[in-house]
Amino acid sequence: MISAQKIATLFKKDLLLEIRQQYTFYGILLYIACTVYILFLAVNEPDASVWNALFWVNMLFISINAVAKSFLQESRGRMLYYYSIASPQEFILAKLFYNVLLMLVMSLLSLLTFGFFLGAPFLHALQFTGITILGGVSMSLVFTLLAAIASRANQNAAIMVIMGFPIIIPQLLLLIRISKAAFGEMFKDGAVLQMVLLLGGLDVLVLALCMILFPFLWKD
């Protein structure tokens, strides 16, 4: 039976480690600031379609840098300790919750930075903010699963690229398409809701894969 207390303890452990070390957090902040500032120098204020594409590509690389390290930094000895105190479902859920929280913070910071340097060409700020949060959650789920698989394959990060490409590209294109509604593009009645539900369905599928596949990786 899955213990909420153990999940909370593992989540708190990751959060405390991040607060004490802060390498990932400040590294991603530096990446966001440098990337957006370079874009500002290169294109100043891009039009809405270019802004939208640049934002989601930037979000992709943020999620790779922020989430992928969550498993790759775990040593074999530490993993053996986790194996003795928690179930695989509890461990992966704690990682998922932590990575979702981290990506929510990074997503909102990226949105604020983009808006400050490159302007905010979208017409519906609250709608785009909601889409940004949804996109951050979706990307964190995908890369948590990929990082878990890569960590159990002798830390082979190339597996993340091979397995992640056919998963993340459709998701990224779907997010770009959905976010166009916040820029004033007209869709057929119910089309945006259908795309959001499709994205939510993909998230549920990834979560189910985490719960099913990770116990097999856990035994390795």
Score class of each variant (00 low, 15 high):
Met1Pro: 12
Ile2Gly: 03
Leu10Ser: 00
Lys12Pro: 03
Asp14Pro: 02
Ile19Asp: 02
Arg20Gly: 03
Tyr23Cys: 01
Thr24His: 00
Phe25Trp: 03
Phe25Thr: 03
Phe25Asp: 00
Phe25Met: 04
Leu30Phe: 09
Ile32Lys: 01
Thr35Asn: 07
Val36Lys: 00
Leu41Asn: 12
Ala42Phe: 09
Ala42Gly: 08
Ala42Asn: 08
Ser49Val: 14
Asn52Ser: 11
Ala53Ile: 15
Leu54Val: 12
Trp56Glu: 04
Trp56His: 08
Ala68Lys: 00
Ala68Arg: 01
Ala68Val: 12
Lys69Phe: 09
Gln73Ile: 14
Gly77Gln: 14
Arg78His: 13
Arg78Gln: 14
Leu80Cys: 09
Tyr82Gln: 02
Tyr83Ser: 15
Ile85Ala: 11
Ala86Leu: 03
Ser87Pro: 04
Ser87Asn: 09
Pro88Ala: 11
Glu90Asn: 08
Tyr98Trp: 13
Val100Leu: 11
Val100Thr: 12
Leu102Ala: 06
Leu104Thr: 15
Met106Cys: 10
Met106Leu: 15
Ser107Met: 13
Ser107Lys: 09
Ser107Val: 13
Leu112Pro: 06
Leu112Met: 13
Leu112Arg: 07
Phe116Cys: 07
Phe117Met: 14
Gly119Thr: 11
Leu123Tyr: 11
Ala125Gly: 14
Leu126Pro: 07
Thr129Val: 15
Gly130Met: 14
Ile133Pro: 05
Leu134Lys: 07
Ser138Met: 12
Leu141Phe: 08
Val142Ile: 14
Thr144His: 01
Asn156Thr: 07
Ala158Val: 08
Met160Asn: 07
Met160Lys: 04
Met160Asp: 04
Ile162Pro: 02
Gly164Ala: 06
Pro166Arg: 05
Ile167Asn: 01
Pro170Arg: 04
Gln171Trp: 03
Gln171Ala: 10
Leu172Gln: 07
Leu174Glu: 02
Leu175Phe: 03
Leu175Lys: 00
Arg177Thr: 10
Lys180Phe: 06
Ala182Glu: 00
Glu185Cys: 02
Glu185Arg: 01
Phe187Gln: 03
Lys188Glu: 14
Lys188Ala: 13
Asp189Phe: 12
Ala191Arg: 06
Ala191His: 05
Val192Cys: 03
Gln194Val: 08
Met195Ala: 10
Gly201Trp: 02
Leu202Asp: 00
Asp203Asn: 15
Leu205Ile: 13
Leu205Tyr: 07
Leu207Trp: 06
Leu207Phe: 10
Leu209Arg: 05
Leu209Asp: 04
Cys210Val: 05
Leu217Cys: 04
Trp218Pro: 01
Lys219Val: 13
Asp220Gln: 09
